[in-house]
Nucleic acid binder design. Structure first.
Length: 554
RNA sequence: UGUUGAGUGGUGCAAUGGUAAGCAUAUCAGACUUUGAUUCUGAUGAUAUUGGUUCGAGUCCAAUCUCAACGGCCA
């Protein structure tokens, strides 16, 4: 425990604040908008916010930023709560920005009374026009100089439903020439005659993000309001509103959002993939969502470990998807039960093995654990091995089965290939082998050393299962940097289904939520589509230096 | 041509004016192996550029270059 891990810049701020006595305890919040499912980028934020509170003895609120009724649904609220809990975090309070609508309204009235907000009748186009551009200042319009009394009345009428959508807005009165676009009289309230998932039809005006988020932070007395870099320009407004309203001074800090190779990380794009049927849903195992990762067999521990390793900083980043896979393998290697499954079967007949005989071999569930457990694997005259574990004309470094070659069958015997059977078209249909009785696993007296060990399944006892293999969703490493439509870069081969793989009998009792390592194939777990037929998702492959070696030769 | 933020091995994160710029991952090589897995060993590889301050600069200053964010009645 001597190694001191360096602090990230937010931890440094927190420690300074605590040390200076600015706060006795910290309060953070995770503020999702319930308009989509959480993805791995949110996991980074969740781990940061909840992790900070855990580390420094504070607390974290879950607050739904539900200020836009047309995009938000309770389905998303439910999924978000499930995902946060699954990741292993508990919130101190479950809040909603909509809980504060009345108070927010009063805050707006306060601003009007101070002469710091006004009702604008301009169209959205006119407002955009008057706003200028990043390089050109905006201009003021005639509504800006309405009297406080008039503004008060108009705003009350807006609430009362006297106006239609878009007819009027409430704006802060700041500075139309500000270099920061967000200070050019930002919109505070807009009219939306829409049904809200929680407040129903009680309101027809809704606060904008800038007038809800910071105020909600303040109401909850959030000490450190942590968000992503795109909100940096909002901070000036965040502070301005708190100052003018004279409310609890929450402070906003920004970190760089997570980007990962071979995927997209925006809810808008993910929603598009779902809506347009490029994936089967938000929890399609190829999606970078928490629910998809969960379905695919990822563990919350590995995701937390990943978030820990990627760190927190302010520079744009593109994290190798392989790092997440590394974290996964690291944990799955420790907990997964070893099983044997043949995906692409090649029949092996043990010519010198007694017809009708079955032997049971005990095979380790997991060689990595201290207390070993075993399951029985049946062995008989006819077996299946993987088709690519045999080569009629072996390449140089190939040390699997080939004519005249010997290999070990995991937990069973060493066999030697004596003959090949082909069909009319020249395809190999069967390999004939002889086994070495003295090479029996556990008491091998044969003194034969073989380089290769293969997984196998008894033809007589094999259980048919479905296996779904996933690859990266996109062909491009940096999808966001590509030209044109991101959907043009979707990997057409991201899903491969093997409807009839042969599994060893122990998998007949495969349990939901159990993690398996199919020997030499990868890590797998059962999918929710499992019915009478067991369906496995490949969580992640094993590292495969042989595949890499082969690729080099190409 | 504006404002703001950011530039350290392929990638990500450290080094808070003071050793040979560290850790992880990736890559390459080797050892071990009844998983070409795991494990172990070793290696390759970085301070955007140019000046300046200083005994000493990745760190401070200046200029330049590059990248990103900002012109929704989205968050």
């Amino acid at each position: 425990m001597s190694e001191e891990k360096s602090l990230n810049f937010i931890e440094e701020i927190v420690e300074e604040d605590l040390k200076a006595g600015k706060y006795k305890t910290i309060l953070t919040r995770f503020p999702p908008e319930p308009n989509g499912y959480l993805h791995i980028g949110h996991a980074k934020s969740i781990c940061l916010n909840f992790g900070l509170a855990k580390k420094y003895g504070g607390a974290t609120n879950l607050r739904f930023d539900d200020t836009n009724p047309v995009k938000e649904e309770t389905e998303y609220v439910d999924s978000i709560k499930e995902d946060v809990q699954w990741l292993g975090f508990n919130w101190a309070n479950e809040f909603y920005a909509s809980d504060y609508f009345e108070q927010l309204y009063q805050f707006a009235v306060t601003l009007i009374q101070k002469g710091l907000a006004y009702v604008d009748d301009s169209s959205s186009e006119a407002i955009a026009e008057q706003k200028g551009t990043p390089t050109q200042p905006g201009v003021e319009n005639e509504f800006r100089n309405r009297t406080i009394e008039e503004n008060l009345q108009l705003f009350a009428e807006m609430r009362a439903g006297k106006y239609t959508d878009g007819e009027k807005v409430l704006r802060a009165k700041i500075d139309m020439a500000a270099s920061n676009m967000h200070m050019r009289d930002p919109l505070l309230y807009r009219i939306k005659h829409a049904h809200h998932h929680r407040t129903g039809d009680a309101w027809c005006i809704y606060p904008m993000y800038d007038f809800a988020h910071g105020q909600s932070d303040s109401i909850e007395k959030i000490t450190h309001s942590i968000c992503t870099l795109e909100f940096v320009p909002h901070r000036e407004l965040y502070d301005w509103l708190i100052e003018k309203l004279e409310i609890f001074p929450s402070r906003q800090y920004e970190f760089a959002r997570l980007n990962m190779t071979y995927t997209v990380m925006s809810k808008r794009k993910l929603l598009q993939l779902v809506n347009e049927g490029h994936v089967t849903g938000w929890d399609d195992p190829r999606m970078p969502t928490i629910s998809a990762f969960r379905r695919r067999g990822f563990t919350p521990e590995s995701i937390r470990e990943f978030c820990d390793r990627i760190g927190v900083a302010k520079r744009d980043n593109l994290i190798d998807f392989g790092l997440l896979e590394f974290c996964l393998r690291e944990q799955l290697n420790k907990i997964a039960l070893r099983r044997m499954v043949v995906f692409d079967p090649l029949k092996v007949v043990i010519t010198n093995y007694e017809e009708g005989k079955t032997e049971m071999f005990a095979s380790e569930d997991n060689p990595e654990v201290e207390v070993k457990t075993y399951r029985d694997v049946p062995f008989c005259k006819e077996l299946y091995i993987e088709r690519d574990d045999f080569m009629e004309v072996p390449s140089k470094k190939y040390f699997r089965l080939a004519p005249g070659a010997m290999v070990r069958l995991k937990s069973a015997y060493i066999i030697k290939c004596d003959a090949i059977v082909k069909d009319d078209t020249g395809n190999i249909t069967e390999v004939q082998c002889s086994y070495i009785p003295e090479s029996k696993s556990g008491n091998d007296t044969s003194e034969i050393k073989v380089k290769g060990t293969l997984h196998w399944v008894s033809a007589l006892h094999a259980v048919p299962v479905e296996v779904r293999l996933y690859d990266r969703l996109f062909k491009s490493e940096n999808v966001g940097a590509e030209e044109g439509d991101f959907k043009d870069y979707i990997n057409p081969d991201s899903l491969q289904v093997i409807e009839n793989a042969y599994a060893e009998p122990a998998l007949h009792e495969a349990k939901f939520n159990e993690r398996y390592q199919f020997l030499r194939k990868g890590y797998f777990s059962t999918d929710k589509d499992t019915s009478s037929k067991i369906v496995f998702n490949r969580t992640v492959t094993l590292k495969d230096t042989w595949a890499k070696e082969q690729k080099k030769g190409e």
